[in-house]
Design a protein around this nucleic acid. Structure first.
Lengths: 346, 346
DNA sequence: TGTTAGCACTCCCAAACGACGAGTGCTAAT
DNA sequence: ATTAGCACTCGTCGTTTGGGAGTGCTAACA
């Protein structure tokens, strides 16, 4: 898709080396290539080409008498221009189909099941960022008194996501009073996106009711604060165990930093929300991931939508030697599928 | 605490062996013991005693010319009669104290922070079973229409836990109608424990309103079903990475089954809810855990309460060679502390 | 000029080997 | 009953060794 920097024979060799290494996890040598993929070239020729590719940074050697493996730059070229798009295997579609029947209407369960499925199909750890709050449409607010000074604020959106926050008040408020406030807010706010709600509408509302009731105003303030602090959506993670199947992590010391990273929601969040110029699908290789622990990993993510608006991200984490072709297809499909599922009931 | 089956010198040796092995992770030999803990016994005597202890099943040898390590039976004896109860170190108390200030009133966040803290202090993976639904007291129900045929049912309890379920109806119901139903249910049910609610009260309510409104009855039915299927509380897990510090898991193949287990909420649930004759604190060693993958692990759990009733469990998972004395103290303390925190605002 | 065969060389890996040392059980002396 | 002494076992660790895969270079060839 990008400008081609390599002549077609070099491309061919880079592709073959990458494909083979992805499959075998072993450095691949000229002899192997000549034998396995008969390209009509002798090992010596291939050696020369590989030496060139190494010099220009697409391949590297673990040690002098080993075969070549792709460098980060090599993977990048592979991903941009060489990789073959795959389609889903029949049995994978089957797995998805059979999941559908059990797919829950509970948004939380649905998302959980979705990452699990993605991990099962790709055989890599899978991550997901739940629907963002901001583009969601306000559906309902409810104030529930837990005791005299603590009030539970529940906000329901059209995505089915429930946000909750406990607020503390100085003076006890009666149930009836809270109901009145809830009703008033509901009437005013139904159908507004939380996005707008945060800025304009709430302000407007505030001035409007200013004179009438000091307490309502306090409630509005609190609602505003609630929505601000609850910015970050939940992170889902599953299939961590899959990464242990790959030889690059057979030594525990290689795996440990990664495990540490996956236990920090903060870091997963950053990985999933890294800016991208692509539309939807994004591939980050090695150091392109801004994360110390993931220098030898790649991440493939896709955004999913709800009613035409991007609301979240789903992705897969694996070694740089990852089956890009396959994972891209699966992640893309799942994101589309999820979008459909989320948009359909509304 | 239990009947003493061993004479005091054997006990002493078993204790020393276990303590040393817990600390060093190396099989411990007679010479080491004689030198390190001067018991006034020669290596030869100790050897004889150890041979006896092995014969009666408290110790075992990894191979013939290695030192001894405790068997499962040995650990059991150690835990029941030999182990010294420890108290929390000043800096551990400090960690807890400094957490308090940030402790959230959101029940979910609070629980999450608690397992994290437990994992940090013990340096083992920590698990937690969130508050059970059944003993909780009904606080509020709200029916929110998501669209014509789907209604979101929200149930709030005094624990601050929010249960939600989407139900599908055959006929569209208006917002007003739903509000009326919500109100009616709220009036009827406030203060009832979900436990009772499930059986008697709902039935009573059903017959009472039977004649009046066919739809309400349907709602009650659905509420009933909701509470039944939402039986299982959420599982929290953190600090998995800690287990990798221990040499018994330095080979990935040893760790893999454990990782698999920890990704199955089902299995964690079973571990946390294993029946116990103890009051509160429970220690399960090796095969006592009914879980294939955890044969070489131990679990220490404690229950926590809310207003005097046991509502959940918190625990720690580690190798059988675990620092029992320390972990018991910490888990016990945290459970008590959590109970206090959960019971105080109400 | 691009391709290929041949060859010397490098270096990883796995197996074999051999001390070393920690620890044991047994026996005999105290 | 305890202990010193001793022969024996066996895992660990460092060294050695051979084999093999792969390379770069050179020279011949189309």
């Amino acid at each position: 898709m990008k400008r081609r920097e390599l002549d077609s024979r070099k491309e061919l060799i880079l592709k073959v080396v990458t494909d083979d290494y992805i499959e075998s996890a072993e450095p691949v040598g000229s002899r192997t290539i000549a034998r396995k993929y008969n390209l009509g070239l002798s090992p010596a020729t291939i050696r020369n080409e590989m030496a060139d590719l190494e010099e220009s940074g697409y391949l590297k050697q673990p040690h002098v008498s080993a075969g070549r493996i792709p460098s980060q730059q090599g993977y990048r070229y592979y991903v941009d221009s060489l990789m073959e798009q795959q389609t889903l295997a029949a049995e994978e579609l089957q797995m998805i189909k059979s999941y559908i029947e059990n797919w829950s209407k509970e948004i939380d369960t649905l998302l959980q099941q979705t990452v699990r499925l993605l991990a099962q199909i790709t055989r890599y750890p899978s991550i997901m960022l739940g629907p963002k709050l901001r583009p969601a449409v306000f559906k309902h607010i409810q104030l529930v008194p837990l005791n005299d000074y603590n009030i539970l604020v529940l906000v329901v959106t059209n995505t089915g996501v429930i946000e909750n926050k406990i607020i503390t008040v100085d003076l006890p408020v009666s149930q009836g009073e809270l109901d009145r406030i809830s009703n008033q807010l509901n009437r005013k706010l139904r159908g507004v996106t939380l996005d707008n709600l945060k800025s304009s509408v709430l302000d407007e509302l505030k001035t409007e009711i200013e004179a009438r009731n000091g307490f309502i105003q306090q409630a509005v303030n609190l609602l505003q604060k609630t929505l601000e602090t609850k910015e970050r959506a939940r992170i889902y993670l599953d299939g961590v165990i899959n990464i242990l199947e790959h030889p690059e992590f057979k030594e525990i010391e290689k795996f440990k930093p990664l495990m540490g990273m996956m236990e920090e929601e903060e870091k997963l969040y950053r990985i999933l929300t890294a800016p991208s110029d692509e539309q939807g699908l994004r591939i980050s290789i090695g150091e392109e991931i801004q994360e110390e622990a993931a220098q030898e990993c790649s991440v493939i993510t896709a955004t999913y939508e709800m009613g035409g608006r991007v609301v979240g991200t789903i992705g897969v984490l694996g070694p740089t030697r990852m089956d890009y072709g396959h994972v891209v297809a699966v992640v893309g499909f799942m994101a589309k599928y999820l979008s459909k599922l989320l948009s359909q009931p509304e």
